[in-house]
Design a protein around this nucleic acid. Structure first.
Lengths: 145, 145
DNA sequence: CCAGTTTAGTTCGTGCCACGAACCAATGCA
DNA sequence: TGCATTGGTTCGTGGCACGAACTAAACTGG
C-alpha cells in the first residue's frame, strides 16, 4: 500500500524526526545523549568559553554547567583556564572525547549514506544544494524568553 | 562571509536540528515539550492503546505512562476503556488538546512556509519529492535494547 | 476447565537534563 | 574607587526516560 505523497512541511518534519531518531540510537550505542553528541561536535574545532557554548547550544548557563560537569566526569571534556578572562574556563575536548566523537561521526555518515542510497548521485547533489539554500536562508530561531 | 557548501550529511543534520529547534520554540510558546507535541500529533487521527502508542513514540511502557499522566493532568488527553482488551486503556485527545495541537500545527506550517520561501515553487516541489523518496526508502531505526 | 504463562499497564527509584534564583568573584566603567 | 555588570557555579524543582517490581486480565495447552 503506497503512502500518499507528502507535502513539503510533512516531508521536512518526517525526515527531521527520522534523522533525530537515528542519531539518538547511534549516540545511545555509545552511551551518549543527543546533547552530549552536540557538545562534542562543537568542541571538535574550537575551545569556547561557557557563555559562548551556552549560546551555541541554546541553553542557560546553569544547564550548560550541568552538562559540562557530566561530560567532564566521563572524561570527555575538560575545563581549562580562559586565556582572556580570569573568571572563566574554556572547554576543551579530551582525546577520549575526540575519539568517541569521531566514532559517532563515522557511524552517522555510514547510516545516512545508506539512507541516501535510494537516490541516484545526481539527485543527491540536487538535494544537498536545496538543503544548503534552505539552511543558509533560515532566520535564527527566536530567542527563548 | 558565505559559508562553504554543505555535503549531504551535514546539510541533512543542519536542517534537522534547525527544524527541531523551531518546533521546540513553537511548542514551548504553548507550554508543550516536543514529546507532548508528538503525542498530540499521533492522537489526531487515532485512539491507540498504550502499547501501540509506546511503539510509535519509541518509549518504554513506563515512560509513556508518565507522559500520558502529565498530558492527562493538563486536560489534553484522557484514558478511555479499551473496547477490545479489559486490561487496557485507549488514549483519546480531548477537545482542549485538539485545539492546542491545531494551533501548533498552524504555527509550524507558517514557520516552515516562511523558511521554504527562499526557494521558488518548482524547487519546493522537487524538494518535497526528494524528501518523500528518502523517507519512504528509510529502514526503521534499529530497536532499542 | 484450570493451572501456569504471558501480557498491558502502573508505580517506584534513579539519573539525565533543563530552568530560574541566588550567589560570588572577576571585570568594566564613570 | 565604588558600584554595576558579568562569567560561572550551586541549589531546588520539574519533565522525561529507563529498568525493576507488581497486579490483574488474557492466553494456552493438557
Amino acid at each position: 500500500m503506497p503512502a500518499p505523497a507528502l507535502n513539503l512541511v510533512d516531508g521536512l518534519f518526517q525526515l527531521s524526526f527520522l534523522l533525530q531518531a537515528r542519531l539518538t540510537h547511534i549516540a545511545a550505542a555509545h552511551d551518549l545523549s543527543l546533547i552530549q553528541v552536540r557538545l562534542l561536535g562543537i568542541l571538535r574545532d574550537c575551545e569556547p568559553g561557557m557563555l559562548e557554548l551556552a549560546r551555541y547550544l541554546e541553553l542557560t548557563k546553569s544547564s550548560l554547567s550541568g552538562l559540562v560537569d557530566r561530560a567532564e566526569a566521563r572524561g570527555l571534556v575538560e575545563r581549562v583556564p580562559s586565556p582572556s578572562d580570569g573568571r572563566g574556563a574554556n572547554i576543551r575536548v579530551t582525546p577520549r572525547g575526540r575519539k568517541l566523537s569521531k566514532a559517532i561521526e563515522a557511524a552517522v555518515n555510514a547510516d545516512v549514506d545508506a539512507l541516501a542510497s535510494v537516490l541516484p548521485e545526481a539527485d543527491r547533489r540536487r538535494l544537498a544544494s536545496l538543503l544548503d539554500r534552505l539552511v543558509q536562508g533560515a532566520q535564527p530561531a527566536p530567542p527563548l524568553d
